[in-house]
Simulated assay, not measured.
Amino acid sequence: MMAVEVRNLHYKYPDDTVALRGVNLTVGKGEKAYIIGPNGSGKSTLLLHLNGILKPQRGKVVILGTETEKWGEEVKKKVGLVFQNPDDQLFMPTVYEDVAFGPENMGLGEAEIKRRVKNALKIVGMAGFEDRSPHHLSYGEKKRIAIATVLAMDPEILVLDEPTLSLDPWIKKSFIELLEDLGENRTVVISGHDLDIMDLCDHAYLMDEGRIVGEIKNKKEIFQKYRSLLRKRTNLISGNQK
């Protein structure tokens, strides 16, 4: 069974910005897929469809064999989405309350909630931070807590939007090691610009202007295709169609 199937997905925002123009993507169970592309290419919009935050206007998104619209709110338990900005995910007074929020809304008992919070914080290397205020943490620490809030719900599919964005190089290295650990026994979909993440993934796809342009086999190919896309955009802006 495929974990994720995106079929001819189209989406336009209320201000008439066309974000997706017929996206097709498949990710097998247990695979790690990386979606790379320039800003504005539609990566974040695509990810927001995977756990039902956005609904397809045309086309289909199928998660574990069932369309997202048929899953309803249950799809959020199957697909855990970590936002690009951790401040969009953390809103409670303490780390414990943020990480416990999802399990509490799943109707789990107190003992199970505590177990999940403890386990999730341990996985992301933030054990002992339960009573800290998320808003007083460093950016990298907030990123880890944001991941813990999703792990506590034990999703089958983990989706991360630009997880290494704005991280200092020495912090990024340990963060990439964390991403590698998270990929064990779980389907993972990641978007971003960081070529180092490609080494963690089974497949990498280049996205531009709301479409998956193609699969990328190596880092050299990324530079070649990026150069081609930039040249194409420059020609369109200048009116040169050659």
Rank of each mutant, 00 (worst) to 15 (best):
M2V: 11
A3C: 08
V4E: 05
V6I: 13
R7Y: 06
R7D: 12
N8P: 01
L9W: 05
Y13L: 07
Y13I: 06
Y13N: 09
P14L: 09
D16Q: 15
T17I: 08
V18G: 08
A19W: 00
A19H: 04
L20C: 04
T26S: 13
E31L: 06
K32Y: 04
I35V: 15
I35K: 02
P38M: 13
G42Y: 00
K43M: 10
S44D: 06
T45I: 00
T45D: 01
T45F: 02
L47H: 01
L47V: 07
H49D: 07
L50W: 02
I53Q: 10
P56R: 03
K60D: 15
V61P: 02
V62K: 07
I63E: 02
E67T: 15
E67R: 13
E69C: 07
K70T: 12
K70S: 13
W71P: 03
E74D: 13
E74P: 06
E74M: 13
K76G: 09
K77L: 15
V79G: 02
G80R: 00
G80W: 03
L81C: 04
Q84V: 06
Q84I: 01
M92A: 11
M92D: 05
V95Y: 00
E97S: 03
D98M: 10
D98R: 09
V99L: 05
A100V: 01
N105M: 13
G109I: 10
A111V: 14
A111E: 15
I113K: 02
K114R: 15
R115C: 11
R116P: 03
R116I: 05
V117E: 08
K118A: 15
I123G: 00
G125Y: 05
A127K: 15
E130G: 07
E130V: 07
H135Q: 10
H136L: 12
L137T: 03
L137Y: 01
L137N: 02
Y139V: 06
I145D: 04
I147L: 08
I147Y: 00
M153F: 08
P155E: 14
E162T: 04
P163R: 06
L165S: 13
S166E: 15
D168W: 12
W170D: 12
I171L: 14
K173I: 11
F175M: 13
E177K: 12
L178W: 07
L179M: 14
D181E: 15
L182G: 08
T187A: 03
T187C: 05
I190V: 11
I190F: 04
I190G: 01
G192A: 09
H193T: 14
D194P: 08
M198D: 11
E209W: 09
G210W: 00
G210T: 03
G210R: 01
R211E: 12
V213A: 10
G214K: 11
G214F: 07
I216Y: 07
K217W: 12
K220Y: 10
R231F: 09
R233M: 07
L236M: 15
I237M: 14
G239C: 14
